[in-house]
Amino acid sequence: MTSALFTSWFLPGVWITIQITLLSALLALVVAFVVGLARTSEVWIVRFVAGCYFEVFRGTSALVLMLWLAFAFPLMFGWQFVPMASGIVALGLTYGAYGSEIVRGALQAVPPAQREAGIALSFTKMQRLRKIEIPQAWPEMIPPFNNLLIELLKGTALVSTIAVADMTFAANISRLASNESAPAYTLLLLSYFVIAFVLTRGMRLLERRAKAGVGQKPESSGWLRRRLKPGAANDFARSQGAGGLG
């Protein structure tokens, strides 16, 4: 891959991939909470509608939905999405459906005694959600949300099929222009890995802060756990609290 192809195609493609990932994740997060909360509603029709949404989008291909929004939707309704918007909406709606199951499961995992305490305090349903259930469920949502975010990142490669110049599209253009497949696709693999690694580190930090916010002890880093002998973690913590070896 020449430097001209790298600067004119691949680097802009990286930025487009990041934008699609973040915007799709934001839409998916909103959809996940709206549908997830609706699936825990006490009103059966609300649960039914939310359940239908979940089943429809869980059983629908994100690629097919993307193609439908880009090419069929304008013919049926006379209004056309920008290609990048088609990708964002398709990914956000699809992964939001998966995220709604995470929200529902985490909320139902909150101990019933916590809800009963809220009822005893005369909290409304929204007050119980805002002050009791969501704060306790949020730390449990983050690890599966992290996995879903990485899957969404990898799913952004689908937008290349509707001519959005993301990293995958740029890598294909570079391969065709330079007739060099190995450098283009190796760089593409490494780029996805680097972005996924950064996103994972950010989500791990968010998880530790969320657990600390509800009084849970954050997990120590993996390298520290591996290097400490069994039973030595408390000694290490005491030595750090006492100023270490000095």
Score class of each variant (00 low, 15 high):
Ala32Met: 04
Trp223Tyr: 12
Leu149Val: 06
Glu116Asp: 06
Gln114Phe: 00
Ala232Asn: 12
Tyr95Thr: 07
Trp44Arg: 15
Gln136Tyr: 03
Thr161Cys: 05
Arg227Tyr: 05
Ala62Trp: 14
Arg128Asp: 03
Thr200His: 14
Gly13Ile: 02
Val82Lys: 15
Gln19Cys: 04
Phe48Val: 07
Met1Asp: 14
Ser191Glu: 07
Leu206Gly: 14
Thr186Phe: 09
Arg128Gly: 04
Gly231His: 07
Glu42Tyr: 07
Val214Ser: 08
Val35Cys: 05
Leu75Val: 07
Phe48Gly: 14
Gly13Leu: 02
Gly243Ser: 10
Arg175Gly: 07
Leu63Met: 14
Leu224Ser: 10
Glu219Asp: 14
Ala70Thr: 12
Ala106Glu: 00
Val46Arg: 12
Tyr185Val: 02
Met76Phe: 11
Pro83Ile: 00
Gly155Pro: 01
Asn179Thr: 02
Gly215Pro: 12
Ser239Phe: 07
Thr17His: 03
Gly78His: 11
Gln19Phe: 02
Gly244Tyr: 07
Ala170Ser: 14
Leu27Trp: 02
Gly99Lys: 00
Phe6Met: 12
Gly105Ser: 10
Arg104Lys: 08
Asp235Ile: 00
Leu67Thr: 09
Ile134Pro: 00
Val198Trp: 13
Val43Ile: 08
Phe10Met: 09
Lys131Trp: 08
Ala106Tyr: 00
Leu158His: 03
Val31His: 02
